[in-house]
């Protein structure tokens, strides 16, 4: 695939082109310097300078609540599996968001495949937007090399002043460029500018935590019995904000929602959190992760340790959402530093 350029004066036209036949989702500002992904119809609504949104884009691929089955019990246990779809463009995805989506893809495409997720995912067009500088001090993307684009998008925009350098990654992206007619061919100067920006970024983005990528999994293996987990457990409120805000957390519960006549209804998949007290409890009352510290340790290991064994991939994207959202101020970078300090 190749690259094209999009002049900033044409960005308005691009949004206009996209909203014509599909829903366009992009970051919009909230109060207190926060942002969220929401449906937009014009460029003016979009916050191009957004820091990671409160909830990650997973809320579109794995909705907080979705119907898996419609059931009707008037004549036995009858049901129909279903998925709600909508042609949607996600615009303004940062590299951390894209990394999160790639992780979810990996999980739900793993056998046995989750067809509900996979079917829905096909109806999305993903347009990324590069961060030229850090969003804030909570981010740890460079440590995981997620400050640079690593695929997972259809188009990827990089701000180079008067224009965006647009990387085309898929056939879908190619078609969009062709049909909209808003893009122009790449110039050698633009190629140069992109290279320069990437060089500047290499200087700007340095690993936020003093640890090498390959040492992360061993750190978590070595620190299983660490007091750091007890300390974090003492602070944790078990609210589940961190897992809701995490772009790669996908634990869920399955519950039935009957209609008022009790014969019909839906079987729903709803977000759950491994931080909740009853998450690992079984019928006899035994709870396999009873303490908050156990559950926080489980969460961290599910990002930095277990997926390395199952998917050969760290499931933290470095977006910093868990640290920003934590009411008890449990900070990912602080946790890391404490673990490194202890294992030194």
């Amino acid at each position: 695939m190749s690259g094209v350029l999009l002049y900033k004066s044409e960005l308005c036209g691009l949004i206009h082109f996209l909203v014509a036949d599909q829903t366009v989702i992009a970051p919009v500002p909230l109060t207190h310097g926060q942002f969220k992904f929401a449906a937009v119809t014009t460029l003016e609504e979009i916050a191009l300078d957004a820091i990671p949104t409160l909830l990650p884009p997973k809320k579109y691929f794995l909705p907080p609540q979705e119907s898996l089955l419609q059931y009707d019990t008037t004549q036995g246990e009858k049901m129909q599996a279903e998925v709600a779809i909508e042609e949607t463009v996600l615009f303004g995805l940062h590299t951390c968001d894209l990394a999160g989506i790639q992780c979810l893809d990996m999980v739900f495409a793993d056998r046995p495949k989750d067809l509900h997720y996979m079917i829905r995912k096909q109806h999305f067009t993903l347009i990324g937007l590069e961060c030229n500088d850090y969003c804030d001090s909570s981010a740890n993307c460079a440590m995981l090399f997620n400050h640079l684009p690593k695929g997972g998008y259809d188009l990827f925009l990089t701000d180079l002043g008067d224009y965006y350098f647009v990387d085309i990654n898929t056939h879908k992206g190619d078609l969009l460029v062709e049909k909209s007619g808003l893009f122009v061919p790449v110039t050698p100067a633009a190629q140069d500018n992109l290279q320069k920006l990437r060089q500047i970024k290499t200087k700007r983005f340095k690993s936020e935590i003093p640890i090498r990528y390959q040492d992360i999994k061993p750190l978590f293996e070595a620190s299983f019995e660490s007091n750091v987990w007890t300390d974090i457990g003492a602070k944790c409120l078990a609210c589940g904000n961190c897992t809701n805000a995490c772009p790669t957390c996908y634990c869920f519960d399955i519950v039935d929602e009957p209609e008022f006549d009790l014969t019909r209804g839906k079987r729903l998949r709803i977000w759950d959190s491994c931080q909740h007290e009853n998450f690992a409890r079984i019928a006899g009352g035994e709870n396999f992760r009873k303490e908050r510290g156990d559950r926080q340790r489980h969460r961290y290991n599910r990002k930095f340790h277990y997926p390395m064994e199952r998917y050969k991939q760290i499931f933290c994207t470095g977006c910093g959402r868990c640290s920003r959202t934590c009411m008890a101020r449990i900070d990912l970078k602080e946790t890391f530093n404490a673990l490194i300090e202890e294992c030194r």
């Binding site: 739900f108 793993d110 046995p112 989750d114 634990c251 519960d253 399955i254 599910r302 064994e309």
Partner: peptide, 24 residues
């Protein structure tokens, strides 16, 4: 081993023991 296998498909996380899914 007994765990609460909610989805049975190695996804929902309830039955997870370290990197193992009890259900799969």
């Amino acid at each position: 081993l007994e765990r609460h296998m909610k989805c049975g498909l190695g996804k929902c996380g309830h039955c997870q023991i370290e990197n193992l899914y009890c259900c799969q």
